[in-house]
Design a protein around this nucleic acid. Sequence first.
DNA 1: ACACACCTTTGATGCACATCAAGGACTGAC
DNA 2: GTCAGTCCTTGATGTGCATCAAAGGTGTGT
Lengths: 252, 252
Amino acid sequence: MTAQLTSSDNTSSTEQCPHDFRVNCGNCRLNTICLPLALEHDDIEELDSIIQRSKPLQKSQYLYREGDEFQSVFAVRSGTLKAYKTTDDGREQVTGFYFPGEILGMDGISNNTHASSARALETSAVCEIPFSSLEKLSAVMPSLQRHFFQLMSREITEDQLLITLLSKNSAEQRVASLMLSISNRNSRRKLSATKFRLPMSRVDIGNYLGLTVETVSRVFSRMQKMDILRVDNKEIEILDLEGVRTLANVGG
Amino acid sequence: MTAQLTSSDNTSSTEQCPHDFRVNCGNCRLNTICLPLALEHDDIEELDSIIQRSKPLQKSQYLYREGDEFQSVFAVRSGTLKAYKTTDDGREQVTGFYFPGEILGMDGISNNTHASSARALETSAVCEIPFSSLEKLSAVMPSLQRHFFQLMSREITEDQLLITLLSKNSAEQRVASLMLSISNRNSRRKLSATKFRLPMSRVDIGNYLGLTVETVSRVFSRMQKMDILRVDNKEIEILDLEGVRTLANVGG
DNA sequence: ACACACCTTTGATGCACATCAAGGACTGAC
DNA sequence: GTCAGTCCTTGATGTGCATCAAAGGTGTGT
């Protein structure tokens, strides 16, 4: 990982608390994920100055709700959030899970209104980035403008992947794909790609993947019998990464 | 519709050909859809100067292919295009249909590579907007920057709608929703909201909606029996718009 | 330590849509 | 015009996942 730009005052104890909000972009562990930018030191400070950090969200607290006025996008600093829409007949559709370093809320730009709700799956801290400031800053920092175009474009391509998954793939392919996705996002954060704790419930997984809880549970059981996954409630261990990949693509 | 900004040289015969590429943004019939901007006359001319117009695409010709280097986004001037991804095992997933006034290609920004392919469903004309020029222009035209952020955000919210549709809704709800979507997009272009010709095949519809051709066909037949739709091959007439809306939301 | 609410698993049954199959309609080439 | 190819429709059958049902597990607050 790249060198810290500053050595600030929060190296007090053994390690900084992941939910600590007294951290700036320059010394944030996640800045290579959230801001893979060729920014000058001054630029980072300028960006840093518009970002608001606040107290962590507790589990199941809302970050924003569908219909709220859109003002900011958010970067996850710690924890996990889910975004979801409520359908006309009152059901939920989970549209994404957001891990540290990832940005959410961009679907609110088009109508100045959040198109989905977001809530914490566990205690989580976020950085709030007021969109109007971001727009102004983007106009004078071409690399920031480009970065946000790219972020939004990535959101589109990821949604397209999910569309394909839902439209064409079996229950096993869907669950295997999600496990791979989480695995990849963990390794990007230098965490284990094969052993992790799921922050979301089976209900949320099923909801995201267009399956019922029962089906998700059954798929996990089958994958255990195949010896490619070990499941202990929310603790997951991928025993055969290649096997999961095959299952995700070739399908079963 | 708003007044034309200029009266140019292409009012020759009765009406300008819809595929004519010698048209600029100022006098384009679609500019209230494509560019609902508070742009000054000079700004529109500047934007106009970066846009490239070329010969129409014939049916089934590619606009771009998955993996091509990304250089431009495109605005549809006439005709219809479909965008689709090819899955690992060689199947197609249609991710969207694009009608006149709509923008496609934005999924290529994130990796400088087109994430999907786009081809014409019928003879179609497009405006090519080189992205590098667009970026530069956006930095000095705040309303243009905002417009593109909004366009991309809208693409995200529309993908989320499709995700919900695929994940939660029955075959009838899906088909009814697509008919409504086409109806709405037609009326935005001052065309009939109840009578239109489908530019895409049943295969494409099924592919987009995650259904087989047979199911799409059967749903059309059922909707005819219910007297809410008249289907004659690709000619569609919505007989009971309220009925279609109910079917789309409440489902059946 | 207990109780209560919620989450997860497993089994039995049913159904919506896929698959397989075949005939008919449209389209373009010559 | 007619032929070949593609597209669309309809019917018969099969299956993957939803639904219904119930029991065991997990965590939390007191």
